[in-house]
């Protein structure tokens, strides 16, 4: 299942080439924006999948790590003039450590109870940031304009660099997920998902491996948060710490196919353009028609593809053999 065949390398290479060429063909800023946001959510979905899909820890609080990633780099840049690239790493480390410190006392929580804890955690983080004067409280942080360069992680004349950076981030996330899922850690995550008892029997240090899963997931999600801050150049709790982002991340992973490396990427490729275009075409009337269309499509996919889109594709491919 996890062996790469020559055919897969060929297909992967072609897809990657198409993704690299995509913004050169689709030159409209909105088209490129949709692709960027899609990659960003794909990355978050892949990160969520390491926890939710493989290790069975359903998190509805991923936005906390996303937000911390956004805030860490922005705050360091505004206050200490630290490069966003260093902010990216600092944010990742803070997120991972926070994830561990909240994950440890939640070591025995499973299923719904774990999910509830993650919601509470993310809400607490949002409320703290909403009131924390040092990081701008409810007003948020405006990222100062710098000269555009890769070193400054900032570009004004074109979205292309952002596109390639987030594509690279996504590839890193996919590579990490692939490596984890096909190594000892991946097997242990799946044992933990089945039940703590069986994991214990198999000699798995459940507490430790759960923390690994949460920390890797938090780090990757935090990277996406820093990217978002550098891309939009303005953040506040209402844009980077709200529940709907967490839900979107779960949806992307679940609809694409949890428990598979590429499922969340497929999920994002379907859901995010759907959400962005329905909002662009139908949202302006202010009647919520876009949300109705979007919600209907999610319902249809969940009803007919309960294993996720990618799950169904691999099933069909295997049957075809």
């Amino acid at each position: 299942m996890f062996d790469i065949s020559g055919k897969q390398i060929t297909v992967g290479g072609i897809v990657l080439a198409l993704l690299i060429l995509f913004p050169l063909v689709v030159t409209s800023p909105f088209g490129q924006h949709v692709a960027i946001i899609t990659f960003m959510f794909a990355m978050c979905g892949v990160a969520w999948n390491l926890m939710g899909g493989y290790a069975g820890m359903f998190s509805f609080g991923q936005v906390a790590f996303f937000g911390i990633g956004a805030y860490a780099s922005s705050f360091l840049l505004v206050t200490f003039n630290v490069s966003p690239w260093i902010g990216l790493m600092v944010g990742g480390v803070i997120s991972a450590m926070l994830a561990a410190s909240i994950g440890y006392p939640c070591s025995n929580l499973r299923g719904h109870y774990f999910a509830i804890a993650t919601i509470a955690f993310a809400e607490i983080i949002r409320i703290v940031f909403n009131n924390w004067k040092l990081v701008g409280a409810a007003e948020g942080i405006t990222v100062p304009m710098l000269k555009e360069s890769v070193g400054n992680f900032m570009f004004h004349s074109s979205k292309l660099p952002y596109y390639y950076i987030i594509l690279a981030f996504l590839l890193i996330a996919v590579a990490v997920c692939y490596w984890v899922s096909s190594s000892k850690m991946g097997y242990y995550f799946r044992a933990i998902k089945e039940s703590h008892d069986i994991a214990h029997v198999l000699g798995v240090d459940v507490v430790r491996y759960r923390l690994y899963s949460i920390m890797i997931s938090a780090f990757l999600t935090s990277m996406a948060g820093t990217f978002y801050a550098q891309y939009i150049l303005y953040i506040d709790p209402e844009s980077v710490m709200i529940m709907p982002i967490s839900v979107q991340i779960v949806l992307v992973a679940m609809l694409g196919g949890a428990n598979t490396v590429l499922g969340p990427v497929i999920g994002a490729a379907i859901l995010i353009p759907l959400s962005e275009y329905s909002r662009a075409w139908l949202g302006y009337k202010g009647t919520g028609v876009d949300m109705i269309v979007y919600g209907t499509l999610i319902t249809i996919i969940s009803m007919y593809q309960p294993n996720g889109v990618w799950g169904s594709i691999t099933y069909l491919l295997r049957r075809g053999k």
Binding site: M1, Y187, R190, A191, K193, E194, S195, D197, I198, V201, N259
Partner: peptide, 8 residues
């Protein structure tokens, strides 16, 4: 008997 259900 406890086995991991989504594995071979």
């Amino acid at each position: 008997a406890q086995v991991i259900s989504d594995m071979t």
